[in-house]
């Protein structure tokens, strides 16, 4: 490798000589820091990081964001991208979200994936109200965000946030699976910073 860029043919690299510099996590604190999921962690110094203190809501947040179960509801073509995101290539199971529940009573998260027509709007609202707390909503695509190309239509709601509160908006028509995953990561950040731990400034 020369200065200023990679000039080495990657096929000729001897991978046996590469040494990983990252330290393997040893203590419980290291392991938890390594996940990057809990932002408020206090360690007892004298026990060398074997005892952890945190606010309880941060632990809850960690549990919530690690397995968000979405409800199976697709309204239009964005739902096709939702299926693509859930499939093996983009693999939303990495975020613990692979179980699309068939019942809103078992779900935490709702993707509003597609055009919300006037006739579908009360059904979407009912679906949201059937979900148990805590619940989150991601609005996906131009139609669900603002009405999109149907903004001048007589039968399309101009944004799903008129009827239910939305946490994350993903633009696109329809958004690619990469955009979905970015939106999911934004929602995880939002959940991570909920509650008193973040309000009191205990997160890093």
């Amino acid at each position: 490798m020369e200065k200023g860029g990679f000039r080495v043919d990657p096929l000729t690299i001897d991978t046996t000589k590469i040494k990983f510099t990252k330290k393997q996590p040893v203590t419980a604190l290291d392991k938890l820091n390594d996940t990057g999921l809990i932002s408020t962690v206090l360690a007892a110094r004298e026990r060398e990081g074997l005892i952890l203190f945190s606010t309880i809501d941060q632990i809850f947040n960690w549990a919530r964001l690690s397995s968000l179960w979405p409800v199976t509801s697709g309204l239009a073509c964005c739902a096709i991208e939702m299926m693509a995101t859930a499939m093996a290539h983009h693999d939303v199971a990495r975020f613990g979200m692979e179980i699309f529940r068939a019942s809103p009573r078992q779900a935490d998260l709702m993707f509003v994936a597609g055009t919300v027509t006037k006739r579908m709007a009360p059904r979407v609202k009912k679906l949201y109200e059937m979900m148990p707390d805590p619940k989150w909503v991601i609005s996906v695509g131009s139609c669900a965000n603002t009405g999109g190309p149907y903004i001048e239509s007589y039968c399309v709601l101009k944004g799903v946030d008129l009827i239910i509160p939305v946490d994350v908006y993903i633009p696109g028509c329809p958004p690619r699976p990469e955009a979905w995953i970015y939106g999911i990561i934004q929602l995880r950040e939002k959940i991570k910073n909920q509650g008193y731990g973040a309000k009191w400034g205990l997160n890093k």
Binding site: K118, R119, A121, P122, R123, K125, K126, L162, I163, P165
Partner: peptide, 21 residues
């Protein structure tokens, strides 16, 4: 705006207070 009645029928009205936030 459309709201769903008790029997599942659609009710059309011009005020959306039952539906909108």
């Amino acid at each position: 705006f459309v709201t769903v009645g008790e029997d599942g029928e659609d009710i059309v009205s011009t005020d959306g207070t039952n539906l909108l936030r």
